[in-house]
Design a protein around this nucleic acid. Structure first.
Lengths: 225, 225
DNA sequence: GCAAAAGTGTTACAATTACACCCATGT
DNA sequence: ACATGGGTGTAATTGTAACACTTTTGC
């Protein structure tokens, strides 16, 4: 143990959503191993920084994205997951609105892009495993915590929320029941603004009230779809 | 990053249950730092072993326990969580029947003992934080996965299960409704054996049918209390 | 005036909760 | 015979699921 030689990295699986499509942010690796292949952004943890600092730093360096929803996902440590040497990686799980940032590649990334999670390229290392677990977490978590709002614009029409849920759950939901249930949770503020999608009746905009959500949560009321 | 000097450990938070008391397995440290203080069992990951192998090995070395329910809990990586140097620890969460093993201290452990989770000693490092998160996980997880059976004898009277749940949930449950619900899940086999607790009518014994549980789970039926 | 999306209530059904008495054994 | 824990059913309430028509806008 005195001569332990294991290195530690962090990886950030960042999801975005737009118009019925869930995407994940990937980089094309500039260096070997897996040079030219797509990978989850991430990199080595520096000696003095926390894991969260490391993952936020690496994400911003490689992709230009500053994230505000980020949680730990899982730690991957199989001995040969990296062909060079023993590397253990702490994977994180993040959510952003894709249109909130212009992404750009730098440092270890030759390119950055959003990929539809149903049309993924071949990935480096064990990154397919990581992504699979992250997708599962996203699909589960949206049913018991209000994380979907991190993927939508601050102000959104109800139909956007509904579409996000049908996309993630992979099934239709009854429009009336869904609306009743969500509004019944009392965490959305209805605004005096409308938005038109070109055709059809303009929709009212709603906004997630995070403060109220935490008040209710602390009072023991749970969010559940 | 070429000169990264972070060490990696694993820790095992192992819970047991007996007669209305949830306990956790702790060791008294034989060496500095925190010599003589209680801690969660664990230690350094060796270069060629997986994280799971490491945690099982350390647990057995220090306490004599071979565990069969073990899952990853969380990774703790604040820069100064260890006073000596930078150490990141992957914590695991385990369950056993305390009477299934005779525990004994060795290697880095001067002593091993079970502690009631409501009467914990002062702990080393950030182990109180780890334990707190583990307890939360246990209390949550028992409501949506059938992990409680890992804490009971293979054959148990229904009242043992009920008491485990009231202990973990911190509230009474209606005896009839609880029984209906659990039996309705169809994962318990009722045996032709009875056990007497000294006074009162002897109770029928039940056994968790793991095979049936996984069949039902794969068929999309979920366990929920 | 018609196409397209938004908005809205009621009824049937399923699940959950509340609740109290008899049974089998040991002393 | 009494103390102790085990075993059981029904009715009220609540929550969930199914279902179709009207409204507002753009063209």
């Amino acid at each position: 143990m005195g001569n332990q030689s294991i290195k530690l990295t962090v990886d950030a699986v960042v999801f975005g959503y737009e118009e019925g499509v869930i995407s994940v942010l990937l980089i094309k690796r500039k260096y070997n191993p897996f040079k030219g292949k797509w990978a989850i952004p991430g990199g080595f943890v520096l000696n003095e920084e926390s894991l969260e600092q490391a993952v936020e730093r690496e994400l911003e360096e490689e992709t230009g994205v500053k994230i505000n929803y980020l949680e730990q996902l899982y730690t991957f440590g199989k001995p040969n997951r990296d062909p060079r040497e023993r590397i253990v990686s702490v994977a994180y799980f993040g959510l952003i609105r894709p249109n909130a940032f212009k992404i750009f590649a730098s440092t270890d990334a030759e390119e950055v892009a959003w990929f539809n999670i149903n049309e993924l390229p071949e990935l480096s290392f064990d990154h397919s495993d990581i992504l699979e677990i992250a997708i599962e977490r996203l699909k589960n978590k949206i049913t018991y915590e209000p994380i979907g709002f991190e993927l939508l614009d601050k102000k959104f029409p109800f139909s956007d929320l509904e579409k996000l849920y049908t996309t993630l759950l992979g099934r239709d939901v009854d429009r009336r029941n869904f609306r009743k249930k969500i509004l019944g949770l009392n965490v959305l503020d209805e605004l005096d603004e409308k938005v038109s999608k070109g055709s059809g009746r303009p929709a009212n905009l709603f906004q997630f009230n995070k403060k109220r959500y935490f008040e209710l949560k602390n009072a023991g009321i749970i969010f559940e779809i």
